[in-house]
Design a protein around this nucleic acid. Structure first.
Lengths: 197, 197
DNA sequence: GCTCGCGATGGGACTGGGTGTCATCACTTA
DNA sequence: TAAGTGATGACACCCAGTCCCATCGCGAGC
């Protein structure tokens, strides 16, 4: 029946999301996901390394985009400008059609510790992609670390705000606001007097 | 034999660390760990929720310490001072005797993706403990987020430097240096001109 | 048109993490 | 001495994830 029909990955993702929404993540079996997609468990694990991974399909592409955007920035660009470019490069993932999907996904992740853990791993992947790209531009290690954390923080707060049900603001606007906000707080923190005796 | 002997948790942890060092994390079974500790799989899972968790025993206590240290800071203390106090509160965990243990543990975590993922979860726990404590002092949300990330970053780089084989510097010194360094970079990042057109 | 190779799938066996339940044992207290 | 409590053992069970091999559809070459 469904065998040999195209888009196995997408079918699996759709089936998983639907079942997770119906019964929750834990109560859903990989077998059930594969069944609904007209496939088998074997095939599921051929497309996704994990049961978790089915919810994080595009995440690795994001790291690539961030990295590319920073490496494509002008050599004279400030670090903040690089971060802004990175955030902008993620914009294609935030179309209005995906809004409801993102909402649903966020609820799932928030409800399941296992998924939150995986999300942190993906975030760490984004962070090191940014840090590597910044180091490649000559940034020192400490700056690269701090800036990448700041960038990821801006990204995730921007994503969270964008995904809110009542939000109608475009992603790039939110992201720039978040980044500028964090930059201002960083300045304030950095301006505090030295602590040690 | 070993049944009813005290310190089941510690015996399990020791056995796990030894076996992980011998054969690696993946090649070690929970049954084998329990066997070496003179216990059974049931008992292992009664003491640790996870196979991973056996390597992260004291981590939750750290979050408590961080939180307490910040809440105990003077109301007039700057945020950087709060972070410094939090870092200091972790000092008891960094005795010279634990140095080799930490080294071994770090190697294990670095080698196993599953463990890195769990470490990120623990780091996130530390981060939100700090952020909550800062918010309780009246810090706004953005500042709390950024400062807690900065604090955790300082902590983990300090830990990494402390655990290096050739290191002989005490932890608190390393931690303060790391924090001050990050503070300076934050100031530099914050001082960059605004990016948008 | 036939065959052959290739890539994607199915199927089933197997390991091991993790859960649940019940019996058992040591120690305490009445 | 008997009852109660808490930690353990023993066992059955579910499911994620791995492995291996058979099968199928499709295209290339003959």
């Amino acid at each position: 029946m469904a065998r040999w029909e195209p888009n196995a990955r997408e079918r699996l993702e759709r089936a998983a999301l639907a079942l997770f929404a119906e019964r929750g993540y834990d109560a859903t079996t990989v077998n059930e996901i594969a069944d609904r997609a007209g496939l088998t468990k074997s095939t599921f694990f051929r497309h996704y390394a994990d049961k978790r991974e089915v919810l994080f399909g595009g995440q690795d592409m994001l790291a690539q985009r961030f990295s590319d955007a920073i490496r494509a920035s002008a050599p004279t660009a400030t670090i903040a400008a690089c971060l802004a470019a990175a955030l902008d490069s993620a914009a294609p993932a935030f179309t209005p059609e995906r809004h409801d999907l993102a909402l649903q996904r966020r609820a799932l992740i928030a409800a399941t510790c296992e998924l939150r853990e995986r999300e942190l791993l993906k975030r760490a992947g984004l962070s090191s992609a940014i840090a590597d790209a910044l180091r490649a531009r000559g940034a020192d290690d400490t700056t690269a670390h701090l800036a990448s954390e700041l960038g990821v923080l801006a990204f995730s707060t921007a994503f969270a705000r964008w995904a809110e049900p009542e939000n109608r603001q475009p992603y790039t606007e939110i992201a720039h606001t978040a980044l500028r906000d964090l930059q201002a707080r960083a300045a304030a923190l950095g301006a505090e007097p030295d602590v040690r005796a």
